[in-house]
């Protein structure tokens, strides 16, 4: 079972991101789960979202997770939340930040020796979608790092997931996913 934990602020689209990912993965015949915890928190409050992917039916409903991937889409949460909770040495971190990887690890020493990838989802989202909604860029970065799917397949399916949005926003999201795929390192 593949497990992913997202760190976000309410309103940044982690739930939509997690559900969008589940939607795409489901079309390949795998079993999926996407959920979030935000209580009665309002926009801007720290929250987490979760994905599970498996070849078997997913029966667990526990919140406890030892994730394979940790996705951080709000830069400040790397510092204010313990993003390494219940992680193991193989856990891969993809973190949005304007810092370089070296600068980021220096500023948050708990990431020392971990598998860390960095990109600036905020800037990408602002420049492509026009708003600081960092969820779809993070999915582009995840595709690159995890090699989960070919980019063409993923983009086609994300168009379907986003189909209710105005064309301009869909186009912006496609650019954002591609740019994140190219820029994550």
């Amino acid at each position: 079972m593949l497990e992913i934990r997202w760190y976000s602020r309410a309103g940044q689209g982690a739930v939509t991101g997690a559900k969008g990912l589940a939607d795409v993965v489901s079309t390949t015949g795998k079993h999926v789960q996407a959920f979030a915890f935000y209580g009665s928190a309002k926009r801007g409050a720290a929250m987490s979202a979760f994905n599970r992917v498996s070849d078997e039916e997913i029966l667990t409903h526990e919140k406890y997770m030892e994730p394979n991937y940790v996705l951080v889409i709000d830069p400040a949460l790397t510092y204010s939340t313990d993003i390494t909770e219940n992680c193991n040495e193989d856990t891969v971190y993809i973190i949005t930040s304007h810092l370089s990887k070296e600068e980021l690890i220096k500023s948050q020493p708990t990431l020392e020796g971990k598998k860390v990838f960095v990109l600036d989802c905020m800037t990408i989202a602002r420049e492509t979608i026009g708003r600081a909604i960092p969820n779809t860029p993070m999915l582009g970065a995840l595709m690159k790092v995890s090699e989960m799917y070919e980019m063409d397949f993923f983009l086609e399916n994300m168009k379907r997931v986003l189909k209710k949005l105005p064309q301009k926003i869909i186009d912006g999201n496609m650019l954002a996913i591609q740019r994140a795929y190219d820029e994550v390192n």
């Binding site: 589940a22 939607d23 789960q33 959920f35 409903h61």
Partner: peptide, 12 residues
Amino acid sequence: QDGFMTSHTAQG
């Protein structure tokens, strides 16, 4: 159905 654990958990 269970609040959040079912109601807000997307599955196939």
